[in-house]
Structure formats: structure tokens, C-alpha cells
Write a protein that binds this DNA or RNA. Structure first.
Length: 495
RNA sequence: GGUCCGGUAGCUCAGCUGGAUAGAGCAUCAGCCUUCUAAGCUGAGGGUCAUUGGUUCGAAUCCAAUCCGGAUCACCA
């Protein structure tokens, strides 16, 4: 039993003085967040918490893609169809409001292409020649030129989106320490192109576009500056990577980005290394797989995208339904109930998305996701609430006494699993993998539940046994609470 | 086509730095609430670990090839 206290103490390690930045979420501002973003966000948040538990100082960050052709599409559609409508005037959440106009744009665009094709214009040509797309491109040029009315509209619509995003972030209990905006960073990297030329890492072609040759590394040639002198996506990323370092002296830079950008991230890291950027070796792409539905992939064109706000609401109302059916918390106030539904609903959602190895494509099964039995967040939360129920009654009973009686199998099992916790935290950090924690914490709960069913705690065979079991229970509760916290999941005292 | 990732029970997933009868949840079936919360516990059935070959005393795990699925290879982001 001597080991119990040290284990709990190990939950929080000494700070190691190292700065790490974790970038996640990074949405476009033309439409609301969806299920894929949730996987990204929960992963980023959890990995950040896991690194903190390993002694790192972590800066949570996000790069908002607030400029470009996508937002111009929403802007154009708003000008065409909104007649001055706003989120306030319609009662629609800002990000959804702007997203609706993005959809309207695409509808109008499709109609126009169809009309052109019907008039005999070839498909490929029609797609480039529509008034809507040309108008959008002009709008982007106007934005870059800083035309006041375009900038004003852009600010207004992005503002709506940010309000919507903030509501969602707050609702799901996440946030950032530092937010970057692409409109501030998209010109970064120009100087770096120059340096790269000087260092002969980059070279210029006849048309004056600038490239890097990565064929020796098994990749291709990659453009870093267009022939018209403007920078491309990767160039901005190099610039931001350097800025992150300069601003925070980070030792590690972690990017939570989907696996469709594996190649891009490989190129980014390689270029940073070749440019001799500090800590370029510690750029880490936390690549995660797509979230698919049982019916197949989510496709925005086919309207099969699962909206983040919708699914979160659904999880919360499902938890309410289950809770009411069980009728265990009838004495709760309305505020307490609301809080509980959210704790359980979000717990189920987060656990469901985090229990799978990040790099794997995962299937989101709606029926399974709202099942609160078995390998789920609510199962683990329930185990915690059960322990708290006992500890509340026996609050003053725990003393420092040691027992000389041998451990029973079920008692030993719990102890054995509990002792693994510190190494599990290290493993999760090493692998940048929250599913390690999810699997472990489930195992802790399962093992405890078997013990709980086999032996009485309050009415143990002896005073010594009761002491031992109370301590085992407390230890288990502490580990569950701590582990779930590393997943961004809170635990209820009662449920 | 090149590169990368995946293929383990009906379904969703662990295990993969080699080691004993391959695990869990869901689903199915059979039990357990006069004792600490049954969102729980106990048990049963269910697997040629994609295929083939190799390395090894020993392979789901390492290597090679093949098959299947996905991603990616823009002067897009």
C-alpha cells in the first residue's frame, strides 16, 4: 500500500522547461465546423494536455484560414441574395449563416454551368467562364488590393463566423492560447524565399518562378514562389513555422492535420530542415485519419456532412434521455442537471473520437456513438461517480493504517493496473496518442468494477480490509479523473 | 504509375520496439439487484490475425511479393 501515494503524486510531473506548440482546428471561415473538425480539435486538445502532464509548457494554437477564394464565395452570395440579412436578423448562428451562403453560391454556380453547357459550351470551359466564379476572383483581387467595401464585408462576415466558432468552442470546452490568422501570415515567407535563394536551397526557373528540388529525398520538385512573385501555400507555412519559433522559442511544433496533407507536411518539414531553421527536426505532423460514416464518406456536395453543433446537441440530449430513464438524480437542480447532461454527452462524444488510434480512418456509427454502455466515456464516468458515492459516505474513515493481510486477486488486479498509469502517460506523449489513455482508463474502470462486484467496500470483512479498499477506490477515482482530464473529459460526482 | 497509410471475431476497435491458450466493446445466448449507483457484474458461442513466401528456437508483430481499400503526387489551399 505504500505505493499508492507516490502513484498519485506522479500524475503531475516536474516541469521540464521545454516549450511546445500544438496547432489544431484551423478551420476555413466559409462554413461551420463538422465531425472531422471535432476529431481534430479533441486530438489537439488532448495531446496538449498529455504533454503538459509530461512536464512541457504547451501553447495551444490555431491558424484561421480567413482569406481566399472560399470566403469570397460566401461574400458574393450574401451580396446577391441576403438583402441585408444578418445572423441577428435571422436568428441563425453566425458560422452557419455564412455557410448557408456558401451553399447558395455553389447552387448558383452549378446552375450557371449547366446553363452554359446546355448552350453548347464544353463543361471544362463552362466551369471557368461563369459570371459567379469570375466575380469571385475579382473580389479576391479587390481584397488583396485592400478595396474598402470588400474589406468591410469580409470583416463583417468573418466576424459572424468567429462568433459562431467561439460559441462552439465554448460549448465543447476547448480554446486556444494564441490564434493566428492567415490574413496576417499569408505574406510571410517572402524573406525566406530570398534567404533560400542565397543559401542555394531554392533555385529560379526561366519564367522566374522559384522551386526546391526534393527528388533526392524521394519527393518531387516543389514550387515556393509563383512566376508573378506571389507566394504559395507552402511558403506561408514556412513563414509561420519560423514566426512560431521566433515568438515562443518552441522546441517542438506539433501540427494536428488530416492525413490528406501527409505529403505537404513532409515537404514543409524537409524545407525547414534544409533552410537550417532551428528545431526543424522537431516539427511533428500528428496525422489523423478521416471520419467516415457507416454510409460512406462525408461529402459536402452531397450534404452528408455531420455538423459539429448538431452532433454535440444530439449527444447531450441523448444523455438527458438516458439519465431521465434511469431516474437516479431526481434531486438535482435544473442547473445541475443541465451540467450533468453536458458532462455525459460530451464525455461520450470525446471518448468515442479519441479511443481510436489517430492515424486510422474511423467509422462514425450514430447508433454506437450514443450507446453509453461498454467501451465508452459514460462507462468510465459512471465508475467514477460510483466511487464518489462511497467516498462521500466514508469521507472520514480513511486513515493511514497499513494492512498486513494479503491482497485478494481482485484487489491486486486493480493495484497492478493502477501502477501502470505513469508509464501510460509517458507512452501517450511519446506516441502523441490519446487513444492510449482512453484504452487504459477504460481498463482501470473495468478492473475496478469487477473488484467492486466481488467485494464489499463499506462492509468489508475487517477494518484493515475496509481501509485497503477505500484507498484502492480513492486511487482509482484519482486516476480516472486525471486520465479523463487528459482526454478533455470531465467526470461527474453523481450520475 | 511513384510515394505514404491501413486490412485482426458479424460490426467497431486493442495488441504490432517478436515470446506462453490472439483481447475488449457492441450484437447473440444464459445467469446476477432484501448489501456500497444494474450507465454495472459473471459466463457461453464466435478468429486459416488479407494471401503467399522468407528470417527466427518462436511471427498478428520483422522482411519481400501479391491482392483489396484509402490518401497524395497543382504557379489550389
Amino acid at each position: 500500500m505504500k505505493k499508492i501515494i507516490p502513484i498519485v503524486a506522479l500524475v503531475k510531473k516536474e516541469m521540464n522547461g521545454k516549450q511546445v506548440m500544438v496547432e489544431y482546428a484551423s478551420p476555413n471561415t466559409n462554413k461551420p465546423l463538422h465531425l472531422g473538425h471535432l476529431r481534430n480539435i479533441f486530438l489537439g486538445w488532448s495531446v496538449a494536455e498529455i504533454l503538459k502532464a509530461n512536464g512541457y509548457h504547451v501553447i495551444k494554437t490555431c491558424i484561421v484560414n480567413d482569406r481566399g477564394i472560399h470566403i469570397c464565395k460566401s461574400m458574393l452570395a450574401w451580396e446577391m441574395y441576403a438583402d441585408g440579412a444578418t445572423p441577428e436578423s435571422t436568428g441563425i448562428k453566425g458560422d452557419h449563416f455564412v455557410g448557408d451562403y456558401y451553399v447558395k453560391f455553389n447552387e448558383a454556380y452549378k446552375r450557371e454551368v449547366a446553363d452554359l453547357v446546355a448552350a453548347g459550351v464544353p463543361q471544362a470551359e463552362a466551369e471557368k467562364e461563369t459570371w459567379t466564379i469570375k466575380r469571385t476572383q475579382q473580389m479576391l483581387l479587390d481584397w488583396e488590393a485592400g478595396r474598402p467595401e470588400v474589406i468591410e464585408l469580409w470583416k463583417k462576415m468573418n466576424g459572424w463566423v468567429y462568433e459562431g466558432f467561439d460559441t462552439t468552442y465554448k460549448n465543447i470546452g476547448v480554446g486556444f492560447d494564441k490564434i493566428y490568422y492567415e490574413s496576417d501570415t499569408y505574406l510571410l515567407g517572402k524573406d525566406i524565399v530570398k534567404q533560400g535563394m542565397d543559401k542555394k536551397v531554392f533555385y529560379q526557373k526561366d519564367d522566374s518562378s522559384i522551386w526546391i528540388d526534393l527528388t533526392a529525398d524521394g519527393l518531387d520538385e516543389k514550387i515556393v514562389q509563383r512566376s508573378d512573385g506571389t507566394s504559395v501555400y507552402i511558403t506561408q507555412d514556412i513563414g509561420l513555422a519560423l514566426q512560431k519559433y521566433e515568438q515562443y522559442k518552441i522546441e517542438q511544433s506539433i501540427y494536428v492535420i488530416g492525413n490528406e496533407q501527409n505529403y505537404h507536411m513532409k515537404v514543409l518539414k524537409l524545407i525547414c530542415q534544409k533552410l537550417g531553421m532551428p528545431n526543424a527536426d522537431n516539427i511533428y505532423h500528428l496525422s489523423y485519419g478521416m471520419v467516415e460514416l457507416t454510409s460512406g464518406k462525408m461529402k459536402s456536395r452531397e450534404g452528408t456532412v455531420v455538423d459539429a453543433d448538431d452532433i454535440v446537441d444530439e449527444m447531450i440530449s441523448t444523455s438527458q434521455q438516458h439519465t431521465e430513464e434511469l431516474g437516479k438524480v431526481k434531486d438535482f437542480t435544473d442547473a445541475e442537471l443541465k451540467d450533468l447532461y453536458k458532462t455525459i454527452g460530451l464525455g461520450a462524444m470525446k471518448f468515442y473520437l479519441l479511443r481510436v488510434d489517430p492515424k486510422k480512418t474511423m467509422v462514425f456509427n450514430p447508433a454506437e456513438s450514443i450507446d453509453f454502455h461498454g467501451f465508452t466515456g459514460p462507462f468510465v464516468q459512471y465508475t467514477y461517480a460510483r466511487i464518489q458515492s462511497i467516498l462521500r459516505k466514508e469521507e472520514n474513515a480513511i486513515r493511514g493504517e497499513q494492512t498486513s493481510e494479503p491482497l485478494l486477486d481482485a484487489e491486486k488486479e486493480v493495484m497492478v493496473v493502477a501502477e501502470q498509469y505513469p508509464s501510460i502517460i509517458e507512452q501517450a506523449a511519446f506516441e502523441h496518442n490519446p487513444s492510449v489513455i482512453a484504452n487504459y482508463v477504460f481498463n482501470v474502470a473495468k478492473t475496478f468494477n469487477s473488484f467492486y462486484a466481488a467485494h464489499s467496500i463499506a462492509n468489508a470483512e475487517s477494518v484493515e480490509k475496509k481501509q485497503l479498499r477505500l484507498k484502492i477506490s480513492l486511487l482509482t477515482a484519482n486516476i480516472i479523473k486525471s486520465g479523463m482530464n487528459l482526454l478533455g473529459i470531465s467526470v461527474p460526482e453523481r450520475m
